[in-house]
Simulated scan of single mutants.
Amino acid sequence: MNEKELEILHLLEQNARMDIKTIAKLIDQTEEEVEAMLKKLEENRVIVTYATVVDWSKVNNHDGVTAMIDVKVTPQRGVGFDEVAERIHRFPEVKALYLVSGTYDLQVVIEGKTMSEIASFVSGKLSALDSVISTTTHFRLKTYKHDGVVFGDDDEDHRMMVSP
């Protein structure tokens, strides 16, 4: 991967809607060169998708629950954690799945309408897998920052000014 492709990736990480003309100007390349680099990055699945970060707490009537579930599993001979991870990521509730270091092996991020729905997923689907030894579920209460984006009403400091 060359330096210009890395620059494109950094720019798109900040703003996935940035147009090719702007990218070309910022990295001192032609629009055709940028288009070719983007096509290559997409074909090689370096760029997997273009995403939008949404503050769902500001959307009326959009209630839901997000849970992070730490999972301890028994790795399978010859495939390690990959086989159980593949089974877990197929569940439609699963929004993200990570292999992690520490006490647990996998971290599963799921979304549901209610805590009961999350509990049902954990007890009926996740814990029922043969390789799963134990789980610990954490519920997201508030988002302060996600994918590098700070959430909040504004950047104004509301603390009272104190002077000597």
Score class of each variant (00 low, 15 high):
Phe81Ala: 07
Phe81Glu: 04
Asp82Asn: 12
Glu83Arg: 08
Glu83Val: 07
Glu83Gly: 02
Val84Lys: 07
Ala85Phe: 01
Glu86Pro: 04
Arg87Ile: 03
Ile88Cys: 02
Ile88Arg: 01
Ile88Asp: 03
Ile88Thr: 02
His89Ser: 09
His89Arg: 15
Arg90Ser: 03
Arg90Ala: 05
Phe91Gly: 01
Phe91Asp: 04
Pro92Gln: 01
Pro92Ser: 04
Val94His: 01
Val94Trp: 02
Val94Tyr: 04
Lys95Tyr: 06
Lys95Met: 07
Lys95Pro: 06
Lys95Ser: 05
Ala96Lys: 15
Ala96Gly: 11
Ala96Trp: 10
Leu97Asp: 01
Leu97Arg: 00
Tyr98Arg: 14
Leu99Lys: 12
Leu99Cys: 10
Val100Leu: 06
Val100Cys: 09
Ser101Ala: 10
Ser101Met: 10
Ser101Pro: 04
Gly102Trp: 11
Gly102Thr: 09
Gly102Met: 11
Thr103Gly: 09
Thr103Phe: 12
Tyr104Val: 05
Tyr104Met: 11
Tyr104Ile: 03
Asp105Tyr: 08
Asp105Asn: 08
Asp105Met: 05
Leu106Tyr: 05
Gln107Phe: 02
Val108Ala: 00
Val108Gly: 05
Ile110His: 01
Glu111Thr: 14
Gly112Ala: 15
Lys113Ser: 10
Met115Trp: 12
Ser116Thr: 15
Ile118Lys: 06
Ile118Thr: 08
Ala119Met: 13
Phe121Pro: 00
Val122Pro: 00
Val122Ala: 02
Ser123Phe: 09
Gly124Ile: 09
Gly124Ser: 04
Lys125Tyr: 05
Lys125Val: 02
Leu126Trp: 05
Ser127Val: 04
Ser127His: 14
Ala128Ile: 06
Ala128Asp: 15
Ala128Val: 07
Leu129Glu: 08
Asp130Ser: 14
Asp130Cys: 00
Ile133Thr: 08
Ile133Gln: 10
Ser134Met: 09
Ser134Tyr: 09
Ser134Thr: 04
Ser134Pro: 04
Thr135Pro: 08
Thr135Gly: 03
Thr135Lys: 02
Thr136Lys: 15
Thr136Phe: 11
Thr136Gly: 11
Thr137Ser: 13
Thr137Asp: 06
Phe139Arg: 06
Phe139Glu: 11
Arg140Met: 14
Leu141His: 13
Thr143Ile: 07
Tyr144Gly: 15
Tyr144Leu: 14
